[in-house]
């Protein structure tokens, strides 16, 4: 298992405490009969989070490595790519329709993630769209979103 970072653990515990406190406060805005269970859960969550913070504070200080922030930024590249690509895709579905946006998403994201051969991009994109059409539209009868194009 990767070495446990004190700072990371502390941040996580503090974030969980804040989240549980906010949700607990929100739970008190609902009638008591409807919010007993969420109140119970959030009190438990506060306790667990506080215990996590205590444990995190007892961890030894980690040594700062050179290029730590660069490494952290590099580690965020993949999640950033996935989030941006999938969010843009879902936004586009509503405007240009499912099939057009899927074609652009697949080819664009494969290219962005590192596959550059045009034959592969077109073959995979077309194969996926045909499979989805056969499975979801033809077989199950799902009406996929249509936009200004299709």
């Amino acid at each position: 298992m990767a070495q446990i970072s004190k700072t990371k653990e502390c941040w996580f515990a503090v974030a969980m405490i804040l989240l549980s406190a906010a949700l607990l406060a929100q739970a008190f805005m609902y009638p008591a009969q409807s919010s007993q269970f969420p109140r119970f859960l959030m009190v438990l969550q506060l306790l667990f989070s506080a215990a996590l913070l205590v444990v995190a504070l007892r961890l030894p200080h980690e040594k700062t490595k050179d290029g730590g922030s660069k490494q952290r930024l590099a580690a965020l590249r993949a999640p950033f790519q996935v989030f941006v690509a999938s969010s843009a895709y879902v936004l586009a579905i509503g405007y240009v329709g499912y099939f057009v946006s899927t074609a652009f998403f697949l080819c664009g994201s494969m290219y962005w993630f590192g596959t550059h051969k045009p034959v592969v991009l077109i073959a995979v994109g077309a194969g996926f769209i045909l499979t989805v059409y056969a499975l979801f539209v033809f077989f199950i009868g799902v009406r996929l979103p249509e936009g200004i194009l299709i």
Partner: peptide, 18 residues
């Protein structure tokens, strides 16, 4: 992974929508 990733997301999106 550069090919599998978009395929998995694409399948997830259509599955969640359906």
């Amino acid at each position: 992974a550069s090919i599998l990733g978009p395929l998995v997301i694409g399948l997830g999106v259509v599955g969640a929508y359906a």
